[in-house]
């Protein structure tokens, strides 16, 4: 399965809905999308991963890169994920301490801290 990407804005947040598999082949597309959003001045991103079937370390690297880019503009990058098999990868790499991970898009949009 390939990667699907779509974006929409809610107030000052930009929600990126990601679906499919994020791996070494597809991760560059996600990287391009995040870079483009930041270059266009969108510094508060919510990455909705509820429809992601697979995530590997390449995908993690892209998300970390996105976080670095938005932080350079005092922005934020929040994740939405409820899937245990995806959350496990964040846990074993210690990235649960780096990313705010939310249960729903609404919760991520409402979050301020």
């Amino acid at each position: 399965m390939d990667l699907s990407l779509s974006t929409h804005t809610v107030d000052d947040r930009t929600v990126v809905e990601v679906g499919g598999e994020i791996d070494v082949y597809t991760a560059p597309k996600l990287r391009e999308q995040l870079v483009e959003l930041v270059n266009d001045g969108n510094f508060h991103l919510v990455v909705d991963m509820e429809n992601v079937d697979f995530l590997d370390s390449t995908g993690l690297g892209v998300l970390v890169g996105g976080l670095k880019r938005v932080r350079a503009h005092e922005g934020s990058l929040r994740l939405v994920c409820n899937q245990e098999r995806i959350l496990k990868i964040f846990r074993i790499t210690g990235l649960t301490k780096v990313f705010p991970i939310h249960q729903s898009v609404d919760e991520a949009i409402a979050a301020t801290d």
Binding site: D56, S57, T58, L60, G61, G65, I89, I92, T93
Partner: peptide, 15 residues
């Protein structure tokens, strides 16, 4: 340079 290789090994070691 991006450390993804090390992250990949970290994931394998963790799994």
């Amino acid at each position: 340079p991006e450390g993804e290789d090390e992250m990949g090994l970290a994931v394998i070691s963790g799994l």
